[in-house]
């Protein structure tokens, strides 16, 4: 069951890398960065999952003797890395806005004044 999550997360990471390496449009590259990041997030949050577990919150009306928690640490880490991913996206998009003004294009293969 959890294997599906793991494989999906590696698939997402590979997909994100593919996007970043093949797509010419800078916005699509930005999306690719997002996808790779979400893949990593999915991997972390799946690491903490335990089949049958509930959310790690002591809410008395819902807990019974038989219930047990999933790992809270990866959830906290995922929270952190989601915020980081959002900031990265914001930064990239602002760069893209200025690049479009300056170079007049969004094509990555035309944005290459620095080379060699």
């Amino acid at each position: 069951m959890i294997l599906v999550n793991y494989i999906a997360s590696f698939f997402l990471i590979a997909l994100g890398f593919y996007c970043m390496a093949v797509k010419k449009n800078l916005i699509k590259i930005c999306i690719g960065m997002g996808i790779a990041d979400y893949g990593a997030n999915l991997l972390i949050v799946s690491v903490g999952f335990n089949p049958g577990g509930t959310a790690p919150i002591f809410t008395m009306s819902e807990l019974t003797q038989a219930s047990f928690f999933v790992d809270p640490v990866p959830q906290a880490l995922t929270l952190t890395s989601i915020v980081i991913g959002a900031c990265t996206t914001a930064m990239t998009l602002s760069l893209v806005i200025r690049l479009k003004e300056k170079y007049g294009t969004l094509q990555a293969d035309q944005v290459r004044r620095l080379r060699g």
């Binding site: 960065m33 790779a36 990041d37 972390i44 990866p74 880490l77 990265t88 990239t92 893209v96």
Partner: peptide, 26 residues
Amino acid sequence: LEGAMKYMVVGSLGSSTVLVGIAMLY
């Protein structure tokens, strides 16, 4: 802007790999 954009893209690749490594170790 171009230099920053390139570093952002490839740098985020590096950051994602670090994150994956941390998840696997954990």
